[in-house]
Design a protein around this nucleic acid. Structure first.
Lengths: 330, 330
DNA sequence: TTTTAGCACTTTTCTATTGACAGTGCTAAA
DNA sequence: TTTAGCACTGTCAATAGAAAAGTGCTAAAA
């Protein structure tokens, strides 16, 4: 569809704009494409007709349109090799055995946000196929205990449990034993219903202060459904970009970053590294989102980078790819 | 030092400015202080001489200076009663027994940031007087275990431990027993040194694969020193204030919010609710910080609100006071 | 047929000017 | 001690003009 020269021109326009953040003029290009500015203007008119570039006003230079970036990303851009130093930094994190996987992902994305000056997001959720492997209850005061739940995939969660004063230690122990026996092997998202329909009848039958005790443990254990947790780093990086030179734009984006629903929507199901440019993402027309899904040992989620539309797509892609590989490996 | 009328005038100027964010003119006041604008101007000149108010340009109305706010806070402002509805909302959080204290504090400060439209910060650190109460190790794969440490105050931390393949289960158990026995009762910040000087010799003596095993557990347990954790809510609230109508100012403040060192510096040692106005805080001249220290059951830290200098000091103070009381009560 | 030089045209950006407005400081009288 | 009155000053918004940057188009050159 595009001639070789047109493609070259588009590449020059995109890359020039990414660098300078200023509309690209025909004159600026002419030196690099050994022909006159008039010729460039003709070709530019063609590219504009195709919808790949735009003017900011009638006599301005050109900037890439969303479609132009899309064509660049799909057909022109060549995958970037990762800088060795950066690679090492990231690798070290994943080879640190003391780190839980989710911490390693968070930390590595933190570094990526520093490396790129974009905003990094880790949207994790302990997958619902985590099953309870063990329950441990430790008393810390007369009427207070702390209940720890460990899943088969190595997740740990803890809750406070307040025991009514009138129940005996024996009853508490009895209750814990019953719960423990019935709940091991249950997936996290089914804990609440198992408690209600399987544990409660047993407790009601065998434990004296069944009502108070059941309630105490139910309120502690009922919210184990996998909750998505959001980790953002370098939130402000994006706002430092010269295209966000307007108070309104900055506030607008800050509001969106603050809105958990919008951020949660970044969730990606596709296994590859996907790029959503401007209007293609449903966050903001001025930004691009590059993201991918990950899954490993019951830990699943999305890692994403948010940058200006003129982001270095090749670098961002290389980084996400690398991290995804490392998650898979560990 | 100030006459009654001057004090009244200052109060009017401060409160008017807090409301309107616009320099206050003599005319605007004259109706409320039954005298002519000329008289007000004379009194304003006096207040300006004392350094309590300022002009933004030679013929502008007046705005309070840092010193003016200070005088207002110290001598004029009357403590505000908390709104009953807000009080209820906050009380519910603290009476929810399933919540760990630190979660309750975080949640309540989140609400405070919504209530005030300021930025709330919880600077917590599991106090160093937390002592290890129990160690639990759960295997989750052939060469992977998860170690859970519970402190006497109810804190829970967990770490991955990778076991070298060539060691036997018996040896692992032996090692865990040794560590467990020697480390219970040790304060978190001394764990590393106890491991090195008391545990290591014993392991070296009795366990065959002592080097590999010691290293595995040491790398998991060596970083239990109380790490300050920072929780911010409503970061953007402050940036929405009309006084931050400038890209430079917003970026500047965002950068400061991003800088952990600066945020950590908010730490307050004083037990009362303290107010730091403009230049009195070392974050930014355009903002005020109101904060207080809290301590309860080995959990200590600082809760703070950051707002524009024209914040509603009475309301902010009332809220922080209320939360501090509730922390103490629980 | 493709490329290029040249020129008219458009928009942006900057600077200067103007007039209306808001508010002060000072003086002199109440 | 208070106040009316007025000159003075800075802000703000609108307007105008000139320079700069860049395009589109036409007609000639390759």
């Amino acid at each position: 569809m595009l001639t070789g020269r047109q493609e070259k021109l588009l590449k020059l326009i995109v890359e020039n704009y990414i660098k300078t953040v200023k509309p690209v003029s025909s004159k600026a290009i002419s030196s690099k494409l050994k022909c006159s500015s008039a010729t460039i203007r003709n070709e530019m008119a063609a590219l504009e007709n195709f919808g790949f570039i735009e003017k900011t006003h009638i006599s301005s230079g050109r900037i890439p349109s969303d479609l132009g970036y899309r064509y660049y990303v799909d057909n022109i851009m060549v995958p970037r090799e990762l800088n060795g130093e950066d690679m090492l930094k990231l690798k070290q994190i994943f080879s640190n055995n003391a780190l839980v996987l989710s911490d390693a992902i968070n930390k590595s994305m933190e570094i990526v946000s520093e490396l790129t000056n974009y905003t990094a997001i880790v949207l994790g959720s302990s997958s619902s196929d985590n099953k309870i492997a063990k329950i441990e209850v430790v008393p810390i005061a007369d009427n207070k205990m702390i209940a720890i739940v460990i899943t088969d995939k190595g997740h740990v969660e803890n809750r406070n449990v307040s025991i009514p004063l009138n129940v005996s230690k024996a009853e508490v122990k009895q209750t814990i034993d019953i719960i423990s026996k019935l709940i091991v092997g249950v997936p996290l998202n089914e804990v609440a219903s198992v408690l209600e329909f399987e544990v409660k009848p047993v407790i009601d039958k065998y434990v004296k202060e069944h009502e108070a005790l059941y309630n105490a443990f139910y309120s502690a254990f009922s919210d184990f459904a996998p909750k998505p947790n959001i980790k953002m780093s370098g939130t402000t990086n994006l706002l430092m970009s010269p295209e966000f030179d307007d108070v309104g734009k900055i506030r607008n984006l800050l509001n969106k970053f603050d809105d958990k629903d919008i951020i949660r929507n970044i969730k990606e199901d596709s296994d590859g590294v996907k790029i959503y440019i401007g209007s293609e993402n449903n966050i903001d027309d001025d930004i691009s989102v590059i993201k991918t899904y990950f899954y490993k040992d019951g830990e699943e989620g999305t890692i994403a980078l948010i940058g200006p539309k003129r982001m270095e797509y090749d670098k961002a892609e290389a980084l996400l790819n690398f991290i995804k590989e490392n998650i898979g490996k560990e």
